[in-house]
Amino acid sequence: MLAAFLLSFGIFVGQTHAEPKLDKVHFLIPGGAGGGWDGTARGVGQALTQSKLIKHASYQNMSGGGGGKAMAYLIKTAKRQRQTLMVNSTPLLIRSLQKVFPHSFRDFTPIAAVIADYGVFAVRQDSAFKNWQDVVTVFQTNPRQLSVGGGSGRGSMDHLVAAMAFQAAGVNPKSVRYIPYDAGGKALAGLLSGETEVLSTGLGEALEQHKAGQVRILAITAEKRSAAAPDIPTLKELGYDVTFVNWRGFFGPPGLDDETVTMYTQVFEKMYQATAWEQVRERNGWADLYKPGAEFYAFLEEQEKTIGELLKALGFLQ
């Protein structure tokens, strides 16, 4: 009994540490298994290991506090997390602003944004709205008539994207009648059952139904038309000066040295060329969006400013 015990310990000891450079990456996921962050981390990890860019990837789920727990944890244990990357995305930035937790991207070392999702607006196929113009017209005359459903709460992403779009059309974002649902799927069900008129959600959530003809996506918040759905006009080309991108990327612990950061960004750059990444991306329907280091930081500041102003306009922030 004791011998077997010692033997198993011996095996564990065999796999030790003290290895050079980027041998392994430990992904910290601020949500549960099966969620968006989880899928992103595991997908990226898989691409990296399959293309032999890193030797080993490990994953740690830590949900709670809307993502705040994982953030607090990374800050607290920063010294021994040199090889840890935390998945992040726009909702976390929004929650920082809403003060759901006391941390923000400034408390970390932003490494890079890797993929992006864009907001879309959809209506039922039998809806009277044939294009985004129609929606805006109705909204301009009588905002109370239009209900916009979304898969997150008031003041969260889906609401903000809708508010942003209407604001660009010259109306008061506060008058958007936003109906919150727990998740994108439920919001979609709400649209289809006739409970709401318009759906504000991510492209990935509604694309299939759009292709099937069940819903009609009227606009997308990207800069250029999406390759996955080239028939959807962007808000910009319709004449509204607004874009929004829900980025997903990685942060490192605070105080990470520049050398390590560069190492990570180089790995990500190489990842984009790899076929393994191509497969992962195809599978999940992600759009590439690469913003490393300083560019990422500047982008975050910009998004924070835009969203901050919007939150103030909506009355969520003083």
Binding site: G64, K69, S152, G153, R154, G155, D182
Partner: peptide, 18 residues
């Protein structure tokens, strides 16, 4: 509270936010 973003009965504990 999902709909409004208001924290209810969490006593400031991050662990109770969800």
């Amino acid at each position: 509270d999902n709909s409004t973003g208001i924290q209810r009965f969490t006593f400031g504990q991050l662990d109770l936010v969800e």
